[in-house]
Design a protein around this nucleic acid. Structure first.
Length: 477
RNA sequence: GGCGCGGUGGCGAAGAGGCUAACGCCGCGGUCUGCAAAACCGCUACUCGCCGGUUCAAAUCCGGCCCGCGCCUCCA
């Protein structure tokens, strides 16, 4: 069974196999660190994190690199506003990035290279391009000469000749061609600068990604990902730089996620219609935000609205309930006598494996998380039904179901948080046991008023009680 | 203008030639329950933007049209 991914380069789904057996090398464009990340930034993080997790589930060793653009015009402007050094501002937003990404259960990348720490590599790359005749200096700047690279436009399917005709009038007359782009920018007064053969300055935006990707992943690496708005010019330029410099293919598969929209319009910092991840996470469960992002195929647009997030919270709760039910079943097993089994376990195990296959088939088909999720919900229902109709569940079936649910929902989709541990939760558990025991006594003497008051008051505190034939259980939320 | 994406039930969203159009949310009815919650069962699109065509068969292919959006400039 092979995996297929939609490659922007060819516009088709293609069978994916890594260049190096057993090992996948991938690069995802990271944020420019001048602000907290918004939901639009979060989508590629979650989408490509999920792809990475799935590749790992499939047994690949994944080398996952994501950059930080910690030096560019926006960071410099932000630093100016705040009256702080640019790198200090960047450092702070990098820390905040990890906080937000962590809330969304995004695994750490293998490496997070930063532009400011790769100036030497970037200068070397530009020098090489210059030597090969692909770059030219102009008054302290250095530009890439697009017409020297015949394949320009292949990724974004644009014809450079037509673009030239439609291009805006360039203010910058230093460029030979309006499509040429800066590899190196001369420093303005008071701007952070590094010495270079062309004078003090800083790297252009595109050269950092291709340089760092090549440095850590090598030419011909497997997957390069990012938002669809990066196709042109960013990724087109990366290809031009990398392939002109190295003379060989840069990345094999180009993957692009669709946008988040608000009222059908693209969410972006420049439009000002963006929602910060931290703000959304204060209103909804962070893992529900992750689920919301995975409920739609990664290439389709998602329109952001509260109803969708609310539905995601409910869906997540449904999955969580199944996990809880399974956990209780495990406890029952531990305490159970070797009563005769009342069957159904083998059937469940078979169904579980069937649904696991459906999940895998969905993910193999261009990382179709929406379809994979459907299999996961089906899995939850099968498990619930089994546990509800079986007084004495079979250990093998419960274990198999637990393992698959945790692998697919937890390891691959990243929807399950870690169990809380520590003194506070132990104390809470003890207190709840006590309260439930006392309430149980009230219930036994049919003192419903007391029993209901306890339940209502706990509800107000954010704790839900559920009375079942096997006793009372509780949960947060 | 060029390139690209999308229009499927109340909402979200899969499906891309042929099983009763997945799955989630909401709503309604039921089972269970002291009540509730959770869970489970059932109901909710004779129909997939519109009009033609191909085919034994189309939401899925072809043509035309309408509508919404994005990229072409920094943007995930």
């Amino acid at each position: 069974m092979s995996m297929y991914l939609h490659n922007t380069l060819t516009g088709r789904k293609e069978e994916f196999t890594p260049a190096e057996p057993g090992r996948v090398r991938m690069y995802v464009c990271g944020p420019t660190t001048y602000n907290y990340i918004h939901l639009g930034n979060a989508r590629p993080l979650v989408v490509f994190d999920t792809l990475r997790r799935y590749l790992e589930y499939r047994g690949y060793d994944v080398l996952y690199v994501q950059n930080f653009t910690d030096i560019d015009d926006k960071v410099i402007n932000r630093a100016r506003e705040e009256g702080l050094p640019a790198l200090q501002v960047a450092e702070r937003y990098i820390e905040e990035f990890f906080r937000d990404a962590g809330a969304l259960n995004v695994k750490r990348a293998s490496l997070y290279p930063r532009v400011s720490q790769h100036i030497e590599d970037i200068i070397a790359a530009i020098t090489a391009l210059e030597r090969r005749g692909f770059a030219y200096p102009a008054g302290g700047d250095v530009y890439f000469a697009v017409e020297k690279f015949p394949a320009y436009g292949r990724l974004s399917k644009r014809d450079p000749a037509e673009m030239r005709a439609g291009a805006r009038v360039e203010v910058n007359t230093a460029k030979r061609n309006p499509l040429d782009f800066a590899l190196w920018k001369a420093a303005g007064p008071g701007e952070p600068a590094w010495d270079s053969p062309w004078g003090p300055g800083r790297p252009g935006w595109h050269i950092e990604c291709s340089t760092m990707a090549l440095k850590y992943l090598g030419p011909g690496f497997d997957i390069h990902g990012g938002g669809a708005d990066l196709i042109f010019p960013h990724h087109e330029n990366e290809i031009a730089q990398a392939e002109a410099g190295a003379g060989g293919p840069f990345a094999r598969f180009w993957l692009h996620n669709g946008f988040i929209t608000v009222n059908q319009e693209k969410m972006s910092k420049s439009r000002g219609n963006f929602f910060l991840v931290r703000d959304i996470c204060s209103r909804f469960q962070p893992l529900a935000v992750r689920l919301f992002l995975l409920a739609t195929h990664y290439r389709s647009p998602i329109d952001f609205d509260d109803a969708g997030l609310q539905a995601a919270e409910k869906g997540l709760e449904r999955l969580e309930n199944t996990r809880r039910l399974l956990g209780e079943a495990c406890c029952r097993l531990a305490a159970a006598d070797p009563h005769p089994r009342d069957g159904g376990g083998t059937a469940l195990t078979g169904r579980v494996e069937e649904l696991r296959r459906e999940f895998v088939a969905a993910m193999d088909d261009d990382c179709n998380t929406a379809r994979a999720l459907a299999a996961l919900y089906d899995l939850a229902r099968e498990i619930n039904t089994y546990l509800a109709t079986t007084s004495c569940p079979e250990p093998g079936a419960v274990q198999a179901a637990t393992r698959i649910l945790e692998q697919l929902g937890g390891d691959v989709l990243g929807l399950f948080g870690r169990q809380e541990q520590g003194l506070d939760s132990a104390l809470l558990a003890g207190l709840m046991d006590l309260i439930i025991t006392i309430r149980q006594e009230a219930r036994q003497r049919q003192d419903w008023a007391t029993a209901d008051t306890i339940r209502d008051r706990l509800r107000e505190l954010g704790l839900t009680l559920e009375d079942t034939p096997r006793g009372t259980r509780w949960k947060k939320g």
